[in-house]
Computed example of a mutant assay.
Amino acid sequence: MSLTQGAPQEVLGTGAPPGTGPTESRTDSGRGRRRQPPSHGRTSRSMFFIVLPFLLLVFVFSYLPLLGWVTAFYDYKPALGLGGSEFVGWMWFEILVSSETQLKQIGQVMANTLAMSFLGIATSLLPVFFAMLLNEVRAKWFRNAVQTLTTLPNFISWVLVYMIAFSLFSTSGLVNTTLHDWGLITVPMKFLDTDQHVWLTMLAWSLWKGLGWGAIMYLAAIAGIDQSLYESARIDGANRFQLMRYITFPMLMPTYVVLLVLSIANILNNGMEQYYVFQNAFNREHIQVLDLYVYNVGLTGNSLSLATVLSMLKSLVSLALLLAANAIAKRARGSSII
C-alpha cells in the first residue's frame, strides 16, 4: 500500500497541517486575505486631531498671554507701545520691596486674599454634604426644584447680585425699612457701608451663588457609585445615614481631593468681580484682594508694569502651591492630578 493512500487530498496538495481547510490555506490570495485590525498608530492620530483644537485654545488663551510678562521689565506706556517704552530691567521688582508703605499695603492685601481663600477651603465640604442630602430626597420633583433654585444664582452676574444686595440691605433697602416699620430699629443698620465682618459677608454671598453649582459634580459622582454596595449594606442592616457615612462619603473623597488640590493652587486667585462691585470707601481696606489690587494698580494707578510684576509673582506662587499640594495628596492618598 502506498504511504499516501487514504491521506486527505487537501493536506497532501498544499502541504498544510491536518485540520487546515482549503479556505484557511489561501489567506494570501485574492479575497481570502484576512482583515487586519486597525493599527494603534492610526487611532492615536485620530484622537490627536480631535484634541488639537482644544490644545490650540489653551495655548492661545493660557500660554500666549505670558509674552506680556516682558512689560515687567519696561516702563510701559500704552500710548508709546513696547517699542517706544524705556527698558528698566528689575526696577519694578525693586520698587515692590523697597517701599515700606507698599509692603504694608501688600501685607494687608495678602491677609485679605488668604482669609477669603481659607474660608472658601474651610467651607468646601458644604457642596459635598448638600449633594449627599439632595440625593436622599425621594420626591423627584422636589429634588429637581431645589437643584434648579440653588444652581440658578451661579448664572447671575455679580453686578446683578450687588443690585439685589443693595435693594435688600442698603440703609433704605427692604430689610431696614421692614425693621423700622415694625419698630425694631430707629436708626438704619449698615450692612454694606461698613468694614465689620467683611470677610464673612463675602463668604456668605459666595456660598449663596456657588453652593448648588459646586454640588453638580458630586451628584454626578454619586450617580456613578456601584449600586451593589448599597444593596449589600442594606442586607447587613445599614440605614440611610450609615449608607451616606460609610459608602457615599468615602466614594466622593477622590473627587473632593482633586478639587481641593486645585483650590489650594488657586489660593491667590479670588477673582475681582465680586469684590469690585461690593467695595466702597468704608470697606476698601478689608475687601481688597490680590486680583482687585492688581486691577487698581494697573488701571486706576496707571502702572501696568508694576501690575504685571504682581501678576507674574502670583502665577509663580500658584504654580508652586499646585506642585506642593499635588505631592501632599499623592503621599497621603496615593493619587494625584499630575
Rank of each mutant, 00 (worst) to 15 (best):
T4H: 14
L12R: 15
T14A: 09
T20H: 02
G21P: 00
T23V: 12
S25G: 03
R26F: 02
D28N: 07
S29C: 09
R33P: 01
P37A: 13
S44A: 12
R45H: 11
S46M: 13
F48R: 12
I50K: 06
L55Q: 04
L56R: 11
V58N: 05
V60K: 08
V60E: 08
V60I: 12
F61I: 05
S62H: 11
P65F: 08
P65G: 02
L67Y: 11
A72S: 07
K77S: 08
L82S: 02
G83M: 11
S85R: 10
M91S: 12
F93M: 11
I95H: 13
L96S: 03
E100Q: 15
Q105W: 11
Q105H: 14
T113P: 01
A115G: 02
M116S: 07
T123V: 13
T123S: 10
S124Y: 09
P127G: 08
V128C: 03
F129K: 00
M132R: 03
L134G: 04
F142Q: 14
F142S: 13
R143E: 09
N144C: 05
Q147N: 12
L149E: 01
N154G: 07
V161F: 11
V161P: 08
I164K: 15
F166K: 11
S167W: 01
S167G: 15
F169Q: 10
L174C: 08
W182C: 06
T186Y: 09
P188H: 00
M189F: 04
K190V: 04
F191K: 08
T194C: 04
T194Y: 00
W199A: 14
M202S: 07
A215W: 01
G224R: 15
G224M: 10
I225Q: 05
D226F: 11
Q227T: 04
Q227V: 02
E231Y: 12
R234N: 03
G237P: 02
G237C: 05
N239G: 14
N239E: 10
F241T: 15
M244W: 02
I247A: 03
F249I: 08
P250R: 07
T255Q: 05
Y256K: 05
V261Y: 05
S263Y: 05
I264Q: 04
A265F: 06
L268D: 05
F278P: 03
Q279T: 14
N280E: 04
N280S: 03
N283W: 00
E285Q: 13
E285W: 04
E285D: 10
H286S: 13
V289H: 01
N296L: 06
V297K: 07
G301F: 02
G301S: 14
V309W: 06
L310I: 04
M312N: 09
L313A: 02
S315D: 10
S315G: 05
V317G: 01
L322S: 07
L323A: 11
A332D: 10
A332S: 11
S335R: 15
